[in-house]
Nucleic acid binder design. Structure first.
Lengths: 158, 158
DNA sequence: GAACAACCTCAACCTCGGTTGAGGTCAAGG
DNA sequence: CCTTGACCTCAACCGAGGTTGAGGTTGTTC
């Protein structure tokens, strides 16, 4: 019982990795972090339910969107524990990222517009520069600035 | 010679920190990383030229845009070494981030649109899902959809 | 029944953008 | 002169999202 024809309902780590496009070390990591679970063989090797492929797909897709694993984990935790999630379940989760994405696009767009304003003047350090003073609720996750800047007191003149 | 009235042309670390809105430890860090320079007093204490305030402002503003320190450093390296940068110099640097920003907005927008497409079907793991297949390089079998988007700045693949 | 790939655990390491702390020195006001 | 706060260096640490490697086991194939 070893080739694709006889495949059981459980997947080995190698198969899971190949099919989900996630490294085996990442599978271990995700399991430690509680994003996926596995069963074990008598010999202590992992075996994954097919459902993990969907979960991993969701993780990957969410990461593309710049969502942190912590938030992805929270989202996954809202899936039913007593049955396999349906399409509707996954659609609900996906929908929940929408606001996130809108906010980030909006933020980036505003930043770009600020930059356009700044290019003309070469300011970047003046108190009146919107870009320089941008500290308004920047998103905290996703690619981009990690930490917000404090408002400034004093700013170089000249 | 110690109060603001008599301030010389060089700034102490504390002054620089307060005026630029950057912690002293960050100043040290930036110096180690080659983003700013300083002179030293006879007693080995740092003294900063006023120009560093502009540089620090540029660093801060660029970080707001989500640019890495490595790239900021490259940009700063294009400033003239023989004179203080002019407004035009700073405007040139700012302008150089524009493409970056456009690309990121564009990418995020495409992701959002993919997500919208996915919400209807709840797929996320189907081979035909654009979002899922974004950055797909395993694409083992079948004519996989071309990658929709690249990971942000060279994200190392597993 | 042996070979060998795939698997296991655990710990250490990586990048990025810094912060924190220990232990010691400098500079300015009184 | 003496105190005090600002400063110095160096090393360790943070957290996110994993990877790498050592040393040992399992499971499938010939």
């Amino acid at each position: 019982m070893s080739n694709a024809e006889h495949r059981r309902h459980l997947l080995t780590p190698g198969e899971t990795s190949a099919r989900a496009g996630v490294s085996v070390s990442a599978l271990h990591f995700y399991e430690r972090e509680g994003l996926v679970t596995s069963e074990r063989t008598a010999g202590n090797q992992r075996r994954y339910h097919r459902d993990v492929l969907r979960r991993l797909a969701f993780v990957r897709a969410s990461q593309q969107l710049g969502i942190s694993l912590a938030r992805i984990k929270e989202a996954l935790a809202t899936l039913p524990g007593d049955r396999s999630p349906t399409k509707a379940d996954w659609a609900r989760l996906s929908r929940s990222w929408r606001d996130d994405l809108d906010a980030r696009i909006d933020q980036l767009t505003r930043l770009r517009d600020s930059l356009d304003g700044c290019i003309g003047c070469g300011c970047l350090s003046l108190r009146s520069c919107a870009l320089y003073n941008a500290d308004d609720e920047l998103a905290t996750d996703g690619p981009g600035p990690r930490r917000l800047l404090r408002p400034l007191e004093d700013v170089p003149e000249r």
